[in-house]
C-alpha cells in the first residue's frame, strides 16, 4: 500500500482514538467538576455505611461535588466525610447532609439540603445536621418484628 494512503488511514484512526480517550478521561473519568474551583467541607455521620470516596454530593438532584474521603473520629467513633463542592455554591451554615440511596440497593450519595442562614460554610467547616445511611437490614428486622416506627432524622449537634 502507498505510504500516503497508509498515513491517511493511520491519521484517521489516531484522531478517532484520541477523541475516544479524551471523552473517557475528560467527560467520564474526572467528572464534570474538573476545571472549576472547589472547596472542602466536612460532615459528621453516626453511620456512613455504603458511602465511598468518589460518591457524589447532590443538591436538589444536581451533582455539585464528590466525597473526598471518609475517616473515623478517634474521640467519639463517628464517621467524618470530607466533601469537595463547587466553589460557586455557597451553602448556608444550617445545611443538612443526608446519605441517600439511588433505588433500593443502588449507590449511596450525599444529599445536601440548604437551610436559610445568612452565614455560609467556609472551607473546612463542618455541617452540624446530618442524617445517616438507612440501615436496610435493621429496617427490615424492625418490620419483621412489627416495631416499625416513624424514623426520625438522627440530628446531632456538634459535641
Amino acid at each position: 500500500m502507498k505510504q500516503s494512503k497508509l498515513e491517511l488511514l493511520v491519521g484517521i484512526f489516531v484522531v478517532l482514538g484520541l477523541a475516544a480517550i479524551a471523552y473517557l478521561t475528560i467527560k467520564l473519568g474526572a467528572g464534570a467538576l474538573v476545571g472549576g474551583d472547589t472547596y472542602e467541607i466536612e460532615a459528621r455521620f453516626t453511620n456512613a455505611g455504603g458511602l465511598n470516596s468518589g460518591s457524589t454530593v447532590v443538591v436538589a438532584g444536581v451533582t455539585v461535588g464528590r466525597v473526598e474521603g471518609i475517616r473515623v473520629d478517634p474521640v467519639d467513633f463517628s464517621a467524618i466525610a470530607t466533601l469537595r463542592v463547587m466553589a460557586g455554591l455557597k451553602l448556608p451554615t444550617d445545611t443538612m447532609a443526608s446519605i441517600k440511596t439511588t433505588g433500593l440497593i443502588g449507590d449511596k450519595y450525599v444529599l445536601l439540603s440548604p437551610g436559610a442562614d445568612e452565614t455560609y460554610l467556609a472551607t473546612g467547616e463542618r455541617i452540624t445536621m446530618t442524617e445517616s445511611s438507612v440501615d436496610l437490614e435493621s429496617l427490615i428486622g424492625k418490620m419483621a418484628f412489627g416495631s416499625v416506627e416513624k424514623e426520625s432524622p438522627e440530628e446531632k449537634p456538634i459535641p
Binding site: I21, L24, T25, K27, L28, G29, A30, G31, A32, G54, T56, T63, D107
Partner: peptide
C-alpha cells in the same frame, strides 16, 4: 449513571 459511576481511577486502569 454512566458519568456518576466512572472514576478517573477506572479510566487510568483501563488505559
Amino acid at each position: 449513571a454512566v458519568e456518576r459511576a466512572v472514576e478517573s481511577q477506572d479510566v487510568r486502569e483501563c488505559f
